[in-house]
Write a protein that binds this DNA or RNA. Structure first.
Lengths: 126, 126
DNA sequence: ACATCATCTGGAGCGGGCTCCAGGTCAAGG
DNA sequence: CCTTGACCTGGAGCCCGCTCCAGATGATGT
């Protein structure tokens, strides 16, 4: 069973070492195994979980929700609850995408308007 | 030429009155006209600009960039620069959308995995 | 043996973006 | 008139999510 040093876990997950320690302190990462001398030894399972954390964080899930999800993960009986949490998050991601698409439309209208103004005034080539 | 009280501008833009004052202080909103007694009187142009600000903020443009954009808007000769700024922002919005779609895929995989686990273990109905 | 380096801990500090507060000033309704 | 309420100002405070620091400890390479 391979293990990984903090530096390796950081490289693999894309989180800084400080952030990994912070996540552990916050309960997003359950206590990581230690070597005899007290250094962290991340497991493959830890890295897998960090991958998911990365994805959830990057899609805007707040630390508190991540922590909740992590707590639930400690108990197999909460599978339904975790599923619900993920589904709610999926819906919120969908909402963000929809909002971004609409806003992108507005930005592009503005861009088109600028282009027209520029050409009309001769400031931009047609 | 219609004008709007702070409360009206807030309702129309969706920004709190405090945020409107903050934006003005930061230079995102150029100094708003005042009534004889010193109260703000927002114009239609102000509200239009706030609409755009809303859109840009909601798509993740930071305060500093908004400020830059606002400064450029004071000088007609900077049209090209503003256009470039918007185009860059459009590209970053597109990148966010792409990233979200990919991450959504990952989340949905996880959801599917949970469903299967749930059914397999009998915790969830097929 | 020694210098170097990675890591450890607890806690302070930071940047972004607001949000709230105290204390004061007007304008309008009863 | 007098109260009420919207508004004003400058500045402090807050929440989030890290990020950095000092000081100590243990592993590593020469």
């Amino acid at each position: 069973m391979t293990t990984y040093s903090p530096a390796e876990a950081s490289a693999a997950s894309g989180f800084s070492i400080d952030t990994l320690r912070y996540y552990e302190k916050e309960g997003i990462l359950r206590p990581v195994a230690r070597t005899g001398s007290g250094r962290r030894a991340y497991s493959d399972a830890d890295l897998g979980w960090l991958d998911l954390v990365r994805c959830l964080r990057d899609t805007g899930m707040p630390i508190a929700a991540l922590k909740r999800y992590a707590e639930l993960s400690a108990d197999a009986a909460t599978l339904g609850e975790r599923l619900a949490l993920l589904e709610a998050h999926d819906a919120s991601v969908q909402a963000s995408i929809d909002a971004l698409l609409a806003q992108q439309g507005q930005i592009r209208e503005k861009i088109a308007w600028y282009r027209e103004q520029g050409v009309r005034s001769g400031a931009l080539p047609a």
